[in-house]
Simulated assay, not measured.
Amino acid sequence: MSTLEEHIDIGAPLETAWDCLHRAEIYPRFLKGVRDARSEGERRAHLDVDAGGRAQEFEVEIVDREMENVMTWQTTSGPDLAGTFSLLPIDREHTRLQARFEYDPGTIKETFGGPQGFAQAVAIERGVRSDLQQFKELVEAQGKAK
């Protein structure tokens, strides 16, 4: 299993970022390849994903550790993927999002296509950074709208 860890600072309160993480319907706005997403109860989400040019559906189980501002997720169908989002308050108006993504490189290649080896790791890193930047922009816009 490989692990990727990234973080980004967001110009919005922790509560705004936490709320956005838990609204599955906005996932397509910041997660590349997610075409549609919906919550299915408090602890599950359904994602329609464009994976390597093929439409796939993933079920995701979500577990919150609210007192720690941590959200973990794990696919329960589709490829075996997992991750953690941790929110850390910097001050009242700024939050750090730490993301951890766990994956098997062979599963990623099989599911999404693309390069192997080091090139694959670089592509995944670039994709996660882009998704985090999109999330930052979305959360900051939500914070300004309030």
Rank of each mutant, 00 (worst) to 15 (best):
M1I: 03
M1G: 12
M1H: 11
S2W: 04
T3E: 13
L4Y: 02
L4E: 05
E5H: 08
E5I: 12
I8C: 02
I8G: 08
D9F: 01
D9E: 15
I10E: 02
I10G: 01
G11L: 07
G11D: 14
A12S: 12
A12Y: 06
P13R: 08
L14W: 02
E15P: 09
A17E: 02
A17P: 04
A17Q: 03
A17M: 04
W18E: 08
W18G: 08
C20E: 10
C20W: 00
L21S: 07
L21F: 08
H22W: 09
H22V: 00
R23L: 10
A24C: 10
E25V: 09
E25S: 13
P28W: 06
P28H: 10
F30L: 01
L31W: 03
L31F: 07
K32T: 12
V34W: 00
R35Q: 14
R35M: 12
A37M: 08
A37Y: 05
A37T: 06
R38T: 11
R38H: 11
G41S: 06
E42Y: 07
E42P: 10
R44A: 12
A45P: 06
A45R: 13
D48A: 12
D48V: 13
A51H: 02
A51G: 08
G52M: 02
G53V: 05
G53P: 11
A55K: 12
A55V: 00
Q56H: 10
F58P: 00
F58M: 13
E59L: 11
E59Y: 06
E59S: 13
E61W: 00
I62F: 04
I62T: 03
I62Q: 11
D64W: 08
E66T: 14
E66S: 14
E66K: 14
M67Y: 10
E68W: 09
N69H: 15
T72R: 14
W73G: 06
T75H: 11
S77Q: 04
G78Q: 04
P79V: 05
P79E: 03
L81V: 03
L81G: 01
T84L: 10
F85T: 04
S86C: 07
P89I: 04
I90F: 02
E93C: 07
H94N: 15
R96Q: 13
L97D: 01
R100K: 14
F101Q: 01
Y103R: 01
D104I: 01
D104G: 09
G106E: 12
G106A: 09
T107A: 15
K109Q: 13
K109M: 03
E110Y: 10
E110S: 14
T111K: 04
T111V: 08
T111N: 09
F112S: 05
F112Y: 15
G113I: 02
G113L: 05
G114F: 02
P115Q: 07
Q116W: 08
A121S: 14
A123L: 09
I124P: 00
E125F: 01
R126D: 12
G127H: 00
G127Y: 04
G127P: 04
V128N: 03
D131N: 15
D131P: 06
L132G: 03
Q133Y: 11
Q134A: 15
Q134R: 15
F135C: 06
F135K: 09
F135A: 07
F135M: 07
K136G: 10
E137N: 15
V139M: 09
A141M: 10
Q142K: 15
Q142T: 13
G143K: 06
K144L: 11
K144I: 00
A145F: 10
K146P: 03
